[in-house]
Design a protein around this nucleic acid. Sequence first.
DNA 1: ATGAAAGCGCTAACAA
DNA 2: TTGTTAGCGCTTTCAT
Lengths: 337, 337
Amino acid sequence: MAATIKDIARVTGLGLATISSYLNGGNVREKNRIKIEAAIEELHFEVNELARGLRTNLTRTIGVVIPELTMLFCAEIITAMEDALRSHGYATIVCDCRTDRDREREAVEFLMHKRVDGLINMPVDRTGEHLKRFLETGKPLVLIDRKIEGLSCGSVLVDNQDAAYQAVRHMLDLGHRRIGLIVGPQHIHAARERKAGYEKALREAGLPVSEETIFYGKDDMNSGVEGICRLVRDNPDLTGVFAANHAMTMGAVIGLNEMGISMGKEISLVGFDNRQFARACNPRLTIVAQPTDRIAADAAGMMLEALSGKDGQPRTAERLRAEILPGQSVRDLRGSL
Amino acid sequence: MAATIKDIARVTGLGLATISSYLNGGNVREKNRIKIEAAIEELHFEVNELARGLRTNLTRTIGVVIPELTMLFCAEIITAMEDALRSHGYATIVCDCRTDRDREREAVEFLMHKRVDGLINMPVDRTGEHLKRFLETGKPLVLIDRKIEGLSCGSVLVDNQDAAYQAVRHMLDLGHRRIGLIVGPQHIHAARERKAGYEKALREAGLPVSEETIFYGKDDMNSGVEGICRLVRDNPDLTGVFAANHAMTMGAVIGLNEMGISMGKEISLVGFDNRQFARACNPRLTIVAQPTDRIAADAAGMMLEALSGKDGQPRTAERLRAEILPGQSVRDLRGSL
DNA sequence: ATGAAAGCGCTAACAA
DNA sequence: TTGTTAGCGCTTTCAT
């Protein structure tokens, strides 16, 4: 059905190698170039990437494994990344592993089976066990958002400690002295860093860090609800809370609503990620937002570079800064001193 | 590097065809089956789908083109769909076209170039022009959420008229008589249907339908903000509004917040989609929610069936029902008669 | 710069 | 049931 280079060769009277050479940017005599281009036009020829891939052992396909596509943070990154990769001819196969280690391992295996040329992963399994076999192939790997110690590959991270520091610092600057933290499981690198940022800000302000004002959640919405309820109940003197990821931020907002506590008046809140959600809150939520577009652009760039140059595995470790977006969810306590 | 069926043939002393037959579920003598399985185990053999695809002209890959991955509605569908397809060995290449017709056309062409075995599309271009060339390949096409007249393919839709009807009916039942509508552009089928449902509910209640209480937006958040502001300003007697898609729902909530109008007291609101957002609103937002899991399961099922059976193009047109999830954003006006 | 020919790993006729 | 053989469409030596 579809035309092949054989057809082009037949029509132009040239050899297969010449056509192939033309297709791959080789040197072809002007005369022949024109003939070939005419034939391609006429026959609607398109290279069969499958056949090419069989020879070159390349699929022009990148695998992406993420925890939850329904997390806006992931969706934003995927969108921008897919766009960048596609504009370079690469297809993106996205696998959502539902924050499940077994599913994540399966996804990586599936993608290896599909012979992707490279892998981008926002890892759930902190051991990196699921990536060992992939790394043996020597194909490029880029980690997003979470780093894994001892894995030699590229990575694009956000400075989580600084993000949390900014959030807490914002409340401190507005006069808050008793500030709670809702944070994810401490075996997750990012969650540990965010806690460290919280502690750093408090210590810098000469305030004590107490485990009573810290709630360790599961990075999901229900943890946020539970967290805010517990923190408020157990700490009557609490004036502000920092929720250190988006799902738990939503949970915290819901929890305040359901307890009938007025956000920004009785309890101040700084959330994490998702500008739209922040704007839809009443009053508008103050958040620290991660630079998803930069993350995506850097990860895609790192991958494309590794793919084009033969420098093999990327080693760069980018570290990007989050920014704080003030709303009205933090009360100014400085007047009430 | 990787083992091939030749290696298996060599190790087992069998012919290529026998191995291939085994691999494709053919009949192989018990003895040989065991030998083959041992060899596969020993050599860590995995079929090269690329090579297989070159022969069979099949890639075991499905292309999906959607308007915005960052719309939770899309993300939820993709997640469930990818899961279903992957469990049947199919990879999913998702292309986000940013609600842009040109990008959508490019995406379809890209996927054809990648020789996907089937295409699932939530179309932006209402003419279906971008799908013409794909349909000529005879490969299965399934449309999601929006139908295109005169295109013979499978489709999974939500009963949009009924969804809107339920929403408006809910407010009518609670005593509202002057109800506004924020709806998408009328060249979009779904938006037309939702408007029809709104009108049907009003007429059934013996109420007039006036263009003054209808705002035609662009299906984005800003339209929602603008819509609610305009409706409230132009209709002093308005007591309730139905926002007929999620982005505009968020916009409407934001608009009310920014105007300082209390939702559920001064103005009642029924929104569209996104259970999490609804729960995070203050007070909790009443919404009609689309059955994303069913949509995904049905679309994937339709695709897999078309792919397995040789019945070619699917023709079924599924129509699913949305459900109303009551919150506290609709005031009960029946007492104040 | 170009052509002939081999072969990537697999499937599918056809024979045996 | 199994083996032999011929490609799928392309790239890539190796000659020319």
